[in-house]
Design a protein around this nucleic acid. Structure first.
Lengths: 241, 241
DNA sequence: CTATCGCATCTTGTAGACAAAATGCAAGAG
DNA sequence: CTCTTGCATTTTGTCTACAAGATGCGATAG
């Protein structure tokens, strides 16, 4: 710490969006990003206990910033913290998956209802960029990258509403959806679908959005997410832990 | 601080919902509740800087739990934290109000779409109880209590969907709406509306929900919240800070 | 008189240490 | 042999202290 070599600033690799343009990201942000990544990568299994001491030595930070990071992840729904018991990676039940999928669908519809017709053409930029990523991933037959680009595409689509809280809520839901996928809790038929067809559906959706036909876009969105839904268990009034 | 007079266990007065049945609430929870209450009560004004040291002496706790509480409030949208600058009470722009109201509307519609017809009659209990509270408040002409009961009623209505994430998100939005009200950012005509009429509208809405007629309930919900909306500025593509 | 630079103060970010509570195991009684 | 009870260990909750960065004021030069 005494060395002025800036050992603090090691983690400028995947720093958060805009925070790090001038500021070195705080250890809290760094820790939250790192733990979130590990959870979504499946490195920490469902229900696994997250020992603070272990995490501190893994991340080479001390407990206060770690605890703040855990508090953030708790609010994101990725971990659950029980009094005097510690933090655990969230275990998702069928009902949780149902909740995540229904909430996602509602938020996407909301974005379309508020954002179509698109007021500022610049709002479409991210979606177009994400679609390009999808097309390239499809050409390279990189299914992992395709899935990732698909998520970015959906997030960008929600962005057309120019609605910060919607964006934030949607991002949170999407993270939990990634948690589902890490657990193989969702039928990932997209993985085995024809890649070109997959991209084509997204391209068509974007074209409808661009056309300004709100109802048509909403209709396509409904069938767009349908396959994910039919695999998800309906409420069933049970909480299969 | 050196005095062992048990200054630790003072705040067992208004502990959180279920946490405190056996567990003494953590200082983090206590601090978050206390600060949230003060913010919503208007004690801390918009944009006001929240000095950690000052808060620690006000709440008689030390900085680590306070910082965790602030992190929670940040995720709730009640405060904003800037790197190395500290925490500030959120300043709501017209666009923020628009976002809060539209999101609230969407979430309520979602609750109706998923929750009507009501599957388990017990889910209606809280709404009925809240309506009774509203009726009593109206009889006593206690407008403050009526408003509060109205919020509880809406929250209970959302509860019919039996959707944890929806409940949680809605609660967060509702808190921000309370922040709007504390700032007089929303036309509170409900305050000056005929009390009986106000309660009657809510009673009618609940009756429609109970009847199982989803479309009718949704239609009534649309006009129910309409008055709040017409006062809220449309996006206007400006961010009046 | 005004603008700019430098310093002092304040505030946040982080670290390490102590106390309290929960868990698991072991020992003893039934 | 099984259940209960007590203790030791582990882990969380909290506190105090130190370091780094930001803000505001004052002094100085133009």
């Amino acid at each position: 710490m005494a060395s002025p070599t800036g050992a603090r600033g090691n983690g400028r690799s995947s720093a958060s969006r805009l925070t790090s343009l001038v500021h070195p990201p705080s250890l809290v942000t760094l820790a939250a990003d790192a733990i979130r990544k590990k959870i979504l990568a499946g490195e920490y299994g469902p229900g696994e206990r997250l020992l603070e001491e272990r995490l501190t030595e893994e991340l080479a930070i001390s407990r206060p910033p770690l605890r703040e990071a855990l508090r953030t992840l708790e609010n994101e729904g990725l971990i659950e913290t029980r009094q005097r018991r510690g933090s655990f990676v969230s275990t998702l039940t069928d009902k949780d998956v149902y909740e995540i999928l229904t909430l996602r669908s509602t938020l996407e519809r909301m974005a379309f209802e508020l954002g179509i017709p698109v007021k500022d053409p610049a709002l479409l930029g991210p979606a177009r960029a994400a679609l390009l990523d999808m097309e390239q991933s499809a050409r390279e037959e990189d299914r992992g990258a395709l899935v990732q680009a698909g998520y970015a595409f959906h997030y960008a689509l929600v962005g057309i509403a120019d609605h910060q809280r919607l964006n934030q809520t949607y991002a949170s839901v999407q993270r939990q959806l990634l948690l589902c996928m890490a657990r193989n809790l969702i039928a990932r038929e997209m993985y085995y679908e024809d890649l070109e067809n997959h991209v084509a559906r997204h391209r068509y959706l974007l074209e409808l959005v661009e056309s300004g036909d709100r109802e048509a876009a909403l209709a396509e969105l409904a069938v767009h997410g349908e396959r994910s839904f039919e695999k998800a268990a309906p409420p069933a009034s049970e909480e299969t832990g």
